[in-house]
Design a protein around this nucleic acid. Structure first.
Length: 888
RNA sequence: GGGCAGCUAGCUCAGCGGUUAGAGCAACCGGUUUACAUCCGGUAGGUCGUAGGUUCGAAUCCUAUGCUGCCCACCA
């Protein structure tokens, strides 16, 4: 066994071996129970970032543990075609090469896009492999695969046939940069600084009198078709029905009354621009007003705006319009104003509400989708996201699913060539397309990428093709067990997957939901709590981290700082801690390894089991039980911390140290002692395996625990109850070990406060009232761990610096010139604390109210404590008193 | 405007009605008995955001309130 663990070498070696041996392939034992996870398909345009690291570590932890627990585990791999982002990437690349993407035909552009995808599409999955992810890559699905595309198109066609998908000319969120419609979810509301302009329009019927209007968008004046005021507003009521003079292009527009107008905002009068504002659009519909579109698809003013504005960008037009108002004496004020503006999530520019012809989905199964979560058929961790989810469903609007892009699933709708598209008789909707394609032309648009991802758990398992579903064992692997994702896509993805699945599968909710549990991770932030972003440059390179700390170290570190659903403040010190822990594990195993070869693992005979063995077994069993509950509650962060604490404090620093002494004392017990160490280590490696798969696999083999099964992930994990069967654990013995540990700790602290290292060899004295036997029995261990070259029982410890332990008072023989100042101060503090606590207890026990109201258990607990503290106080005073006789 | 989190040791967090509020990191003191200095032993450090209330008892429950972050929302 090497002195140092070479994680780089071991990790690449084992990953290759796992893949070659088919370790990650789903198993299909029809007798078994399934445990399925679908990977949130990373964008083919994406590069590995910290979020992927956390997300995929968690999934890997779950799936590996599921294998250990005997499930037929299946982790579906795949990638997303990434709609708009891929198109942007390819367009950029083409421009760089001097090709104008707009000059290309659809087919030419798609050819470039497919080529780009084929070259770069698997990069991110390959990067993930460095983390140790155990997905079944042989079943990899890409959202544009032919089979998956059939899933998506079938969904569309079915919805269309049910009348849930319809085409309509409606107000949509238009992104002038990427020139496509967006769903409401793709629009981010951001506070932007701007100006609120107050201006006045002359009232046509009353020349010389004006109505004052507030607006943030004077450039849309040419699109105004009315001025609206609240019908009950006494200031304006009388002018309803009259007309205002729109300044440019000059036109008389009606003054109307509508209750949407807020009387106390601005001037209480609202200009109505139906083509560029959804509220205004609704007003126009109600009042039968014309709609004047004044902004082009790419965000410029069109010819209807008049010669001064036509051709300007929205931003330039605003300035120009303000100037024009000023020139006409119509601008009254321009106040600084901060208001929220819709921003395109992808391109970062303000979206333009725009009237256009789009495809919409009227969401089905909304009530069912709510019920599934409300009734716990789908469980959210942390639970609080339920509210967010339900609130969204309560306020859900139809989904604009068409995108004016080339890259994606083309909408499976054909129009009869040369005929009126609006006439339903001229429509063909099907997955295969019309039988006489020469007479038809297909809709130009593609589907929103999220529309296709919504089918992920269905499509990856072959739905709706019966043969494919049989091949993929749909009935066995569906529903999936756990979805691990971020709460930022709860609407984009999680809710929509639920809706699609419920809409298309028949049966009980338990069978039709896409997953039984959703675990929402937090967002990884930098040490200052800022989001990680390219522009800030605060995001570490994941592959560098893996190279520095090892995949195991990174995984362990990430898990230890990722509490359930809370944001994670990234700190590379944690990765370092993870790596150090792996080193510690290596060294501890190496120590065992150097003691001699593993004998065939055997059940230990009762007479060979020491109290320390019992105690460590109890600790391991407790740890196992804790892990079981941590996995149920998705509390990996404390699970990992407990794993480390047990190993360092209980196993290495206590148990192994005791074992060393025991082996030194009695060479004949050596084999039994080592055998027990193997029992502990073997189980511990298994318990740790989901978190740090590489090093545990490596040690599994190195230590020779692979005699039955080479791959640790396939070895059934014993439960806490089974572990306890190994030895007859007595509570008394556990208590003795506890006392021994506490005594050693107290003596070491005592020595330390005398300025002595814990291993400095000294003569020591003790006085014990009722633990003589225990001390005698553990004499060598006690002496060795405390650094006593001699330990002498005595009646009086007077004149020697002493300390209290559960086993009695211990005094060390120190040189005459030892400084006891520190020790005296320590004892003094101890006495003060005890006095304070005794006073508190006494007050409590003298309180009638406490005695009559508190439960018996609490009262007796308080009495016991008081008694203990009183006797401790007496002894501590004695110890301090004994020091008074000493000079220094 | 509505909602959801968080506020506990210098930092990151645990504890969510019952003894004297814990851990890791950082700090400080001390340590090479051959598994490990990527380590070991020890020490110090907190009126639990603020103010009220309920209770024998509150970090924990209730009511206000202050910051911090996030989500939703058609005030132009």
């Amino acid at each position: 066994m090497e002195k140092e663990y070479n994680f780089r070498e071991a990790e690449s070696r084992w990953y290759e071996c796992w893949e070659d041996s088919g370790c990650f392939l789903r198993s299909e034992n029809p007798e078994g129970k399934s445990y399925t996870i679908v990977i949130p398909p990373p964008n083919v345009t994406g590069v590995l970032h910290m979020g992927h690291l956390l997300n995929n570590t968690l999934q890997d932890v779950l799936i590996r543990r599921a294998r250990q627990d005997g499930y037929c585990a299946f982790w579906q791999a795949g990638t997303d075609h990434a709609g708009i982002s891929l198109q942007v990437v390819v367009e950029k690349k083409l421009r760089k090469e001097g090709v104008d993407p707009n000059a290309l035909s659809r087919e030419e552009f798609l050819e470039h896009a497919y080529r780009w995808r084929d070259m770069h599409g698997n990069i991110i999955l390959n990067q993930l492999k460095h983390l140790g992810v155990s997905c079944d890559f042989s079943k990899k699905v890409h959202t544009l695969d032919a089979a998956y595309a059939r899933t998506v198109l079938t969904g569309f066609v079915e919805f269309f046939r049910k009348g849930l998908i319809y085409r309509g000319r409606r107000m949509v969120n238009w992104c002038p940069k990427s020139q496509t419609a967006l769903s409401d979810e793709e629009v981010l509301m951001q506070m932007r600084k701007g100006k609120l302009y107050r201006m006045r329009y002359e009232i046509v019927e009353d020349p010389g009198s004006f109505i004052e209007i507030s607006t943030t968008r004077p450039e849309t004046i040419p699109g105004d078709v009315a001025v609206a005021i609240h019908p009950d507003d006494p200031r304006y009521r009388h002018i309803i029905g009259k007309h205002a003079r729109r300044p440019f292009p000059e036109m008389e527009i009606p003054i109307i009354g509508d209750a949407v107008v807020l009387r106390d905002f601005g001037t209480g009068a609202l200009k109505i621009t139906p083509a560029h504002d959804s509220v205004d659009f609704a007003v126009a519909q109600r009042h039968g007003l014309a709609i004047i579109d004044v902004i082009t698809a790419d965000g410029h003013m069109n010819e209807r705006t008049g010669p001064e504005l036509c051709g300007l960008t929205r931003e330039d037009a605003r300035e120009k319009a303000v100037q024009m108002l000023q020139e006409r004496g119509l601008l009254l004020a321009a106040e600084d104003y901060e208001h929220s503006v819709g921003i395109s999530e992808r391109s970062g520019v303000p979206i333009e509400p725009r009237l256009s012809e789009q495809w919409f989905l009227r969401y089905p199964c909304i009530e069912l989708a709510k019920e599934a979560v409300r009734n716990g058929i789908i469980q959210f961790f942390p639970r609080r996201w339920e509210k967010t989810y339900l609130h969204w469903l309560d306020n859900i609007q139809d989904w604009c699913i068409s995108r004016q892009l080339l890259w994606g699933h083309r909408i499976p709708v054909w129009y009869r060539r040369g005929c009126e598209r609006l006439n339903p008789a001229n429509l063909h909707v099907s997955v295969e397309g019309p039988a006489d394609p020469e007479n038809w032309e297909q809709d130009e648009d593609v589907l929103d990428t999220w529309f296709s991802s919504a089918f992920w758990p269905l499509g990856t398992l072959g739905w709706p093709d019966q043969d494919a579903m049989a091949r993929h064992h749909f009935d066995f692997f569906y529903p999936t067990a756990t979805l691990v994702t971020g709460p930022d896509i709860i609407f984009f993805w999680v809710a929509r997957m639920i809706i699609m699945s419920l809409a298309f599968l028949k049966g009980d909710l338990e069978q039709t939901v896409p997953f039984r549990t959703v675990y929402f991770t937090g967002i990884i932030r930098d040490a200052q709590g800022r989001k990680m972003s390219k522009s800030l440059g605060n995001s570490p390179e994941p592959l560098d981290l893996i190279d520095t700390y090892g995949a195991d170290g990174v995984r362990f570190g990430l898990l230890s700082i990722a509490p359930e659903g809370q944001d994670v403040l990234f700190d590379s010190a944690r990765m370092e801690q993870g790596r150090n822990f792996c080193t510690k594990l290596w060294n501890a195993c190496r120590f065992r390894f150097l003691q001699g070869k593993l004998e065939k693992a055997q059940a230990p005979a009762p007479e060979h089991i020491s109290v320390e063995d019992e105690a460590i077994l109890q600790g391991l069993s407790d740890l196992t039980e804790y892990q079981e509950s941590a996995f149920r509650k998705y509390e990996f962060h404390s699970a990992v911390q407990r794993m480390e604490k047990f190993f360092r404090d209980d196993y290495c620093d206590w148990y192994v140290e005791v074992c060393k002494i025991r082996m030194r004392l009695d060479e004949s017990k050596r084999a039994h002692i080592l055998n027990f160490q193997d029992i502990i280590l073997r189980h511990y490696l298994q318990l740790l395996h989901p978190f740090t798969p590489f090093i545990t696999q490596e040690l599994w083999c190195t230590m020779g625990y692979d005699d039955q099964e080479k791959f640790i992930q396939n070895v059934p994990l014993q439960r806490a109850e089974q572990l306890k069967q190994i030895a007859n654990i007595s509570e008394d013995n556990i208590a003795i070990v506890m006392e021994l540990r506490e005594s050693v700790a107290a003596i070491r602290a005592h020595k330390s406060s005398l300025g002595l290292a814990s291993q400095t060899q000294l003569r020591a004295y003790y006085h014990s009232e009722n633990r003589e036997n225990a001390i005698k029995k553990h004499f060598p261990i006690l002496c060795s761990l405390c650094g006593f070259e001699e330990l002498i029982a005595t009646k009086s410890l007077r004149g020697r610096p002493a300390t209290l332990t559960p086993w009695g008072t211990f005094a060390v023989d120190v040189p005459n010139n030892t400084d006891h100042g520190q020790e005296r101060a320590r004892l003094q503090r101890e006495i003060e604390t005890l006095e304070r606590n005794i006073a508190t207890s006494e007050a409590k026990l003298n309180d009638e109210n406490f005695l009559s109201n508190a439960p018996e258990k609490v009262i007796s607990g308080a009495k016991i404590l008081l008694g203990e503290n009183r006797s401790k106080l007496i002894k501590t005073r004695e110890v301090l008193e004994s020091l008074r006789g000493i000079q220094k």
